[in-house]
C-alpha cells in the first residue's frame, strides 16, 4: 500500500521545471542549469518523501538536468566548432514548450468544464424498469468498444455461481464449438441475442470463459457485432 499525496501545484517534472523557471523569471532559452538543478533537487527531496511511485519521473528529470550541466562544462572540441553545435539544453527547451502548449489548453479546458457544470441537460432520469427484452433505443451507429465488453463480462463472472466444494473435472469444450454454439443461438433468435442471457445459460465458469473467447473471435472475424441499447444497458450480439 502506498500513500499517494499529490502536490497540487505540480503535475510532473516538466510542470515543476516550468514553475521554477517562472518563479526565478528565467529566460526559457538561456536556462542557468546549475541554479535550476539546485532548486529542482530541493523539491525532489520533498517529493521523494511524499510519493515514492511518481518520484521516479522526477528523478529521471534530475538526472537529465545534471547530464546537461555536465555536457555544458565539457570543453568543446575546436574541430567541431565550425558546425553549429546543438546546445544540450535545446532538447529540454523543446520538451518544456511542447508541454506548455498543452498545459495552456488544459487550463482553458477547465474553463469550458466549469461553464458546462453550470447547466444541466435533461437526462438524469431513468424510468426504465429494466424491460430489456427488446432493443428499443437501437443505435446502430453507436460503437461500443471491447473495453465495454470486458467490463460487462466481469459483471457476468461475478454473477456466476461460485464453487464452494472443489471438484476436479475435465470440461471438454473448445472455442470452435462455442463459436458454433453462438452462431446457432443467433440463428435461432432472429440473428440477435442478449449477452447476459446467453452467458447465464451456460452455468459454468470455464464454459463461460471459452464462450467469451469464442465471441471475441467472432468479432475479430467480423461475423458478429456487439451493440448496447443504452449506457449500462443490455449488450446485444448481432449477426453481421
Amino acid at each position: 500500500m502506498s500513500y499517494h499525496i499529490q502536490l497540487d501545484t505540480f503535475d510532473g517534472p516538466l510542470d515543476l521545471l516550468l514553475f521554477l523557471i517562472r518563479k526565478n523569471e528565467i529566460d526559457l532559452f538561456d536556462i542557468p542549469i546549475a541554479e535550476v538543478t539546485q532548486q529542482y533537487l530541493e523539491y525532489l527531496d520533498l517529493i521523494k518523501m511524499l510519493d515514492l511511485e511518481g518520484a521516479s519521473d522526477y528523478i529521471l528529470m534530475a538526472a537529465t538536468l545534471i547530464r546537461i550541466k555536465a555536457k555544458m562544462l565539457l570543453p568543446k572540441s575546436p574541430v567541431e566548432d565550425e558546425e553549429e553545435e546543438e546546445d544540450p539544453r535545446d532538447e529540454l527547451v523543446r520538451r518544456l514548450l511542447e508541454y506548455q502548449r498543452f498545459k495552456e489548453v488544459s487550463i482553458q479546458m477547465a474553463d469550458l468544464e466549469q461553464a458546462r457544470r453550470l447547466v444541466w441537460p435533461r437526462r438524469f432520469f431513468d424510468y426504465d424498469l429494466g424491460d430489456d427484452d427488446e432493443p428499443v433505443h437501437w443505435e446502430p451507429d453507436q460503437n461500443y468498444s471491447l473495453f465495454d465488453l470486458m467490463r460487462v463480462f466481469k459483471d457476468v463472472l461475478k454473477k456466476a455461481p461460485t464453487v464452494t466444494e472443489h471438484r476436479v473435472e475435465t470440461i471438454s469444450v473448445t472455442s470452435e464449438e462455442q463459436m458454433d454454439y453462438l452462431l446457432k443461438e443467433l440463428h435461432e433468435n432472429n440473428d440477435q441475442i442478449l449477452f447476459y442471457e446467453t452467458m447465464e445459460k451456460l452455468q459454468n465458469r470455464l464454459v463461460m470463459i471459452v464462450t467469451f473467447i469464442a465471441l471475441l473471435e467472432l468479432i475479430r472475424r467480423g461475423m458478429v457485432v456487439i451493440n448496447q441499447s443504452s449506457v449500462f444497458g443490455e449488450i446485444w450480439i448481432k449477426r453481421k
Binding site: D27, F29, L97, E104
Partner: peptide
Amino acid sequence: LPKPREIEELFKEGKF
C-alpha cells in the same frame, strides 16, 4: 476546443 499555440509563437515569446 482552444487551440494549442504554435511552438514558434512560444519561441518568440520566450525571447528566442
